[in-house]
Design a protein around this nucleic acid. Structure first.
Lengths: 348, 348
DNA sequence: GTGAAAGCGCTAACAG
DNA sequence: CTGTTAGCGCTTTCAC
C-alpha cells in the first residue's frame, strides 16, 4: 500500500539510486550484473516509477491534454478513442476536458492542463482564428494541434477541407435536383468549421446561378429543434433539402420533420456531416460526408507524440494536415420530386 | 514562457515562500497586509501553482482517473461528460483511459493512473466480481467507484438494478404478446451487467411458464451483426422480439434486420437498453430502458469528490447506489401479430 | 504572524 | 561503470 520508491529498489539491490534510475530508464551505462540485480529487485518489489516525481524533475510529463466540446456527440467520442489508442502505444496518458463549446472554458481548461504540466495539447476550439485558447497555448509554449478545426492562419491542425466538403454536398444536392436548400447549424461562433461548410455550400449554389442557401442557426445544445424547423417550413416553403452541419443535428432534423408529419426523403431531403457510425444504421440511412473523428484523433496524437519525443528537432509544423473525406450516399437524400412542395405548402 | 513559481512571488512580494504558500492556499495565518501584498504580486506575475510540485509534496492530487470501455458508444460519452461536469465544479481533473472491454487493459490502466498519483478512480470494468482492476485498486489503496457495473459483493458503485430492469423488459415483451424472444449481447465475460439483464429477462419468462429466452452472443466490437441475426432467424424462427443489451446493439439489430428484408416492429420487435438520446430520434424510435450515463457519472463523481475532500471521515462506502430506471416506449416494440412468423419462416 | 529548513520521488550533471 | 550531489516546486513542521 505504501508505494515502493526507487530508493527501496536501490536498497534491495545494494546499488545507488542513480544506478537504479539508469538501469530502469535504459539510459546511461550499467554493467550487466548491475542491470540484472536492479531489474530483479524492481520486479520482486513491484516497483513502478512515480510519474509525478519524474515529471517534476525532468519537466517533461508523459501526459497530453485533450480538449473537446462534448462527448455527447459520438464524433468527438470517436476522436478521443482514437487519441487514446495511439497515446497508449506511445506511452502517453490523456488528461481530458469537455468545454461544452464555451471559449471561456476552453481557456480555463488550458490553464488547468498547463498547471498539471501536460506535454502538449490536442484540442477542438470554437473558432480557431480567434481563439484565446490557442493564444494561451502559444503563450505558455505548449505544443498543440487542433482537430476538426481548419484555421485560416497556419497552425498545427488536422482535419478535412470543410469548404470543399461543403461544396461537394452542394454538388450532390444540385445533382438531385434541389435548387432551394437550407443549412442548419449551431451558432457559427461556436464552430468555425460549420461556417466553412456553409461557405462551400453557398459558393456552389451561387456559382450555378442558384439562390444562396438559407441559413438556420439553432441551439446546438438542445436535443431537438422542432420550432426552428417549423419556422423554416413556414418562411421558406420552397426549400426541399436540408444540410445539417453535423450528423447528430441531421438525425434530429429527420426526427423533427417526422414529428411535423413530413417524411425524409419524400418530403424533404437531409444531408449530414461527420459520418458517425450510427448514421449508417438509421432508416433512412443518413446521407453524409464521412470525415471521421477516429482518423483525426489518431493522426493528431501520432504527430504530437513525435513532437514530444524530439522536443527540438521535430517541433509541430504550422500546417494543416488535410485528411480525405468522401460523400456517403444514404436514403435521406433523394431526387426532388416535381410536386415536392406539396406537403410543405400544406403545413399549417 | 518560463513558468512563474512560488519563489518568484515570494521575491516580488518580499515575503518568504512559506508565507506565499499560506496566503495562496488560504491556510494558516497571515496578516492582512501580507495577504494583500502576496496576492497582488501573484496576480501581477500571473502565478499559478505547479500542480506537479504540489502533488509530489502533499501526496494528494486534484486528479481522478476514469476508465471506460470505449467512447464510441455514446452512453459512455454521456457518463464521462457528466463526470467532467462535476469534476470541474469540484476543481478536479480527469485522466482518461479507454480499455476496449479488455480486462488486461483495465489493469494496465490502473497501474498507469496510479503512477500518475490520481486521487481516486471512476471506472466501468468488464466483470466487477472477478476484476483484477478492482483488486489492484484495492491493493493500491486507491479510492474507486464503479459505474454501470453492479457487483454482487458490496463495493462502491453506482448504477441501476440490471436484473430488475431486465425483468421489466420481460414484462413489457410479454405484455405485447411476445412469448419467444432472444437476448442479444456481447460476450458476458466483457459485461457483467449484460448478464444480469439477461437473468432478469429469463426469470420473468420462466416465472410465467414461458420458454427461456434464446441467448445470442455477438462480437460487441463489430459494427454490424447480420450473420448472427440470420442464424438466429434460421435456428429459432419462433422468436418475435429481440432484447439487445444496449442501445447501440439494438440500433444495429434494427439495421441488420432491415438488411435482411425484415421490418421493425412489423416482423420483429426490438428493445434496447441505456436510453441514449439518439434512440429517441430514429424511426421507429427505440423502445428502451432509460438508465443514462450522465446521472451515473455525475453521482459517482460527486461521491468520489466528497471522499477526496475528507480522506478520513468520508471514505467511500461499500454500497451500491441504485439509480432509478424507466422503460421508454418507442415504435420498435409492438404487439406480436397473429401471423407474426410469416416473414420469418419465409426467410431463406 | 512569519521564515528557515526538510524533504516528496526522481533525474542529471559531475566526480571518481 | 557507478555513487554523490543538487535540486524540480511545493507544503509543512518547527522555531522564533
Amino acid at each position: 500500500m505504501a508505494r515502493v520508491t526507487i530508493r527501496d529498489v536501490a536498497r534491495a539491490s545494494g546499488r545507488s539510486i542513480a544506478t537504479v534510475s539508469r538501469v530502469l530508464n535504459g539510459q546511461g551505462s550499467a554493467s550487466a550484473q548491475a542491470r540484472a540485480e536492479v531489474e530483479a529487485a524492481a520486479k520482486s518489489l513491484g516497483f513502478r516509477f512515480n510519474e509525478v516525481g519524474r515529471t517534476l524533475r525532468s519537466n517533461r510529463s508523459r501526459t497530453i491534454g485533450v480538449i473537446v466540446p462534448t462527448l455527447t456527440n459520438p464524433v468527438f467520442g470517436e476522436a478521443v478513442d482514437g487519441i487514446e489508442e495511439v497515446a497508449r502505444t506511445r506511452n502517453l496518458q490523456v488528461l481530458l476536458s469537455c468545454v461544452n463549446y464555451d471559449p471561456l472554458r476552453e481557456a480555463e481548461a488550458i490553464a488547468m492542463l498547463a498547471s498539471k504540466q501536460v506535454g502538449g495539447l490536442i484540442m477542438t476550439v470554437s473558432d480557431a482564428d480567434n481563439s484565446t485558447a490557442v493564444a494561451e497555448a502559444r503563450a505558455l509554449g505548449l505544443p498543440f494541434i487542433l482537430i476538426f478545426n481548419q484555421p485560416s492562419v497556419p497552425m498545427p491542425a488536422v482535419g478535412v477541407d470543410n469548404k470543399a466538403a461543403g461544396a461537394l454536398v452542394g454538388e450532390e444536392l444540385i445533382a438531385h435536383g434541389h435548387t432551394h436548400v437550407a443549412f442548419i447549424a449551431g451558432h457559427f461562433a461556436a464552430s468555425d468549421r460549420s461556417r466553412q461548410r456553409f461557405e462551400g455550400l453557398t459558393d456552389t449554389f451561387v456559382a450555378r446561378g442558384l439562390p444562396a442557401p438559407t441559413l438556420v442557426e439553432v441551439d446546438y445544445r438542445a436535443p431537438r429543434h422542432g420550432g426552428a424547423v417549423a419556422k423554416l417550413l413556414r418562411q421558406a416553403p420552397e426549400v426541399t433539402a436540408l444540410f445539417a452541419s453535423n450528423d447528430m443535428l441531421a438525425l434530429s432534423m429527420v426526427a423533427d420533420l417526422r414529428a411535423l408529419g413530413l417524411s425524409v426523403p419524400a418530403d424533404m431531403s437531409v444531408v449530414g456531416f461527420d459520418g458517425i457510425s450510427i448514421g449508417a444504421m438509421t432508416d433512412p440511412a443518413l446521407s453524409t460526408v464521412v470525415a471521421s473523428g477516429g482518423p483525426m484523433g489518431r493522426t493528431a496524437a501520432a504527430r504530437l507524440a513525435d513532437a514530444l519525443e524530439h522536443p527540438h528537432a521535430k517541433a509541430l509544423k504550422d500546417d494543416f494536415i488535410r485528411l480525405p473525406f468522401q460523400f456517403r450516399p444514404g436514403g435521406s437524400l433523394a431526387a426532388r420530386a416535381a410536386d415536392k412542395n406539396r406537403n410543405v405548402r400544406s403545413y399549417p
